[in-house]
Design a protein around this nucleic acid. Structure first.
Lengths: 333, 333
DNA sequence: TTTATAAAATGAAACGTTTCATAATTTAAT
DNA sequence: ATTAAATTATGAAACGTTTCATTTTATAAA
């Protein structure tokens, strides 16, 4: 048996297409007709074909989300929160991965556009505005998440990486630490660069020189971070270690556990991103925490605003991170 | 400037709708016309409206995936792998979360159907066939992942939970362990129940009685697992601990780290799911590993087969897990 | 050159909605 | 009971494709 359509409802009720459509879209109609349609819909098991509706209204109620990879706790949680907020407003999320490849990223955008998504959220992997020239021909709202790319005309939702790192490294300096190792992502990664800047800011605030040999960069995965940090700690030239992203924080936890380094007695540890997993570390980690909920919320609300208006006023939004002092950092005496 | 359509290509080339359509779909046409169309498409910047195409062909090239939550490493990796395989075949993935709520799950299926997805992959949260009555009216291929629900007519892709657990617990028994604690998910969770059965099988294989007080159940999150396992280990009534899912394995790692329990000297630890994070644990964990790649691959290939044929022959597929003996389990002397 | 055949092109119909100008009906006012 | 005004219903057109029966054109054979 074929799926029932509006026309079947018309036939059953004797009413016209226009009337049934009005019913479906919440218009006013005579009570008797409303009831007739109610009944017909019930009997036929009719459901609006949202796909056809999207075809005609040109609003598919779908938001495309383009991530480096799904398999990333941080983005997974953002998407999860966005999905919740969007589904409340009748929107769905279609996700694709760029695998950190600008080509694939561009292809995916094309793919999304061809499917008429209403809006696009990208965690960009490109480094320059040149990589995003093609967005000029995209006529739907676009939000870039987490990474700033100068010269791209779209909405940005970022966190105050530099500022919060300045604040937290200042705290370590105030505690008397001077040999503070920092382990970030490879150079050129926006978030990591910003965090390094904050680290430098703090040293400058204290009128101190940065020891370049304590600034490390490593690929964003736990394995690599773990190996590097084990090496750093075995050389033991620092009293504090700032792992400036989640994989590094994670690698650090494993390294100190394995090396039986007592935290914070032998080493002060400052982490990034308070994921479920870090919470069970003992002692409680002093940590920079990104406001995932707010990021998702702001992204969605900006998106919705753009979807309502015809004219966009793209902004660069910067959300404040939380610096939470716990038990993994000590005051040097 | 409005987006170019086929009709614009027609106007520019003087050819008909049918001809241009044939061009787009790989039919044969005169070389001269082919070139004319090539040129027109180039000049107009024309791209097929996949949405409209899907509307008419009734194949949206989209697979719906319904997960308990995104924020789950195991499922995230499966989806990631599926997305890769599917995108190669021109398919996209739209993901939604059920939040482990059968109602939401059903709603999401409705949502998917209204959007005309071509196929559906579900990690079900319902416990009985009754929860899935509504699937009878769904006329697209459906694959259930990870959890078996008896009486539901659809494809299943599972792993041999019971068998691999039997095998691995037998190994522990062979090593001389008798007090083997097992920590699983709450009762009623298919995977966990199966794993518990495998545990019992092994004891039976050895002609031994299971000590019920060593069978624990705990919510599937690291925090809870960590707390429970700490408690279990402080009572110290076992020589081995089998954490039969990922959160529990994780909680166990943190518990033994914090309690400074030496593995495998003081306790043999058997884990589940070899995620990135467990790999950096020292000593190398003896572990049951699910074949994530195979799960994704099989799911996709079964899906594709169903999409080609008109008649489905739904199967229950069971993939073998890997039991990897490493350094976290000791032979008792 | 003519005819038969094969290959390519044509264009109307369909998909399931919304939209909107027009028509019909109801209600209110005289 | 009429008329005017307000409300509700109507149905053709549009959205951008594919499909397919029909027509046109090219090719091969006579």
């Amino acid at each position: 048996m074929k799926k029932a359509t509006i026309k079947d409802v018309c036939k059953k009720t004797g009413l016209s297409l226009g009337t049934v459509s009005k019913y479906l879209n919440g218009g006013t109609l005579r009570e008797a007709n409303r009831e007739k349609i109610d009944r017909a819909i019930e009997e036929l098991g009719y459901h609006v074909d949202e796909y056809a509706r999207g075809f005609i209204t040109n609003r598919t109620k779908t938001v495309g989300v383009l991530l480096p990879e799904f398999d990333n706790m941080f983005y997974a949680r953002i998407v999860s929160d966005m999905e919740l907020a969007l589904s409340k407003r009748g929107y769905a999320v279609t996700v694709r991965e760029s695998h950190r490849d600008v080509r694939k990223e561009r292809e995916s955008v094309r793919w999304f556009i061809a499917r008429r998504i209403d809006a696009l959220v990208i965690v960009p992997c490109g480094k320059s505005a040149q990589d995003y020239e093609y967005l000029k021909e995209v006529s739907i709202p676009v939000v870039f998440l987490d990474h700033y790319v100068s010269g791209v005309n779209c909405e940005f939702v970022l966190v105050d990486n530099r500022e919060v790192c300045r604040r937290s490294v200042n705290y370590l300096l105030d505690c008397g630490h001077r040999e503070i190792a920092i382990v970030g992502a490879p150079q050129g990664v926006y978030t990591s660069d910003e965090r390094m800047r904050g680290y430098r800011d703090a040293f400058e605030d204290h009128g101190l020189q940065v020891d370049e040999s304590l600034c490390y960069h490593v690929e964003e995965n736990v394995d690599s971070a773990y190996l590097l940090i084990k090496k750093i700690l075995s050389e033991k030239r620092c009293t504090a270690l700032f792992a400036s992203n989640f994989p590094n924080t994670y690698g650090a936890i494993f390294a100190v556990n394995e090396m039986r380094i007592s935290i914070p007695d032998e080493l002060s540890l400052l982490g990034f991103d308070d994921m479920m997993f870090t919470r069970v570390f003992h002692p409680k980690l002093t940590i920079v925490d990104q406001p995932i909920g707010q990021i998702a919320e702001l992204t969605v609300s900006r998106l919705m605003e753009h979807l309502q208006k015809k004219e966009y006023d793209y902004r660069v939004n910067v959300l404040a991170c939380n610096f939470e002092i716990n038990d993994s950092t000590a005051v040097l005496t």
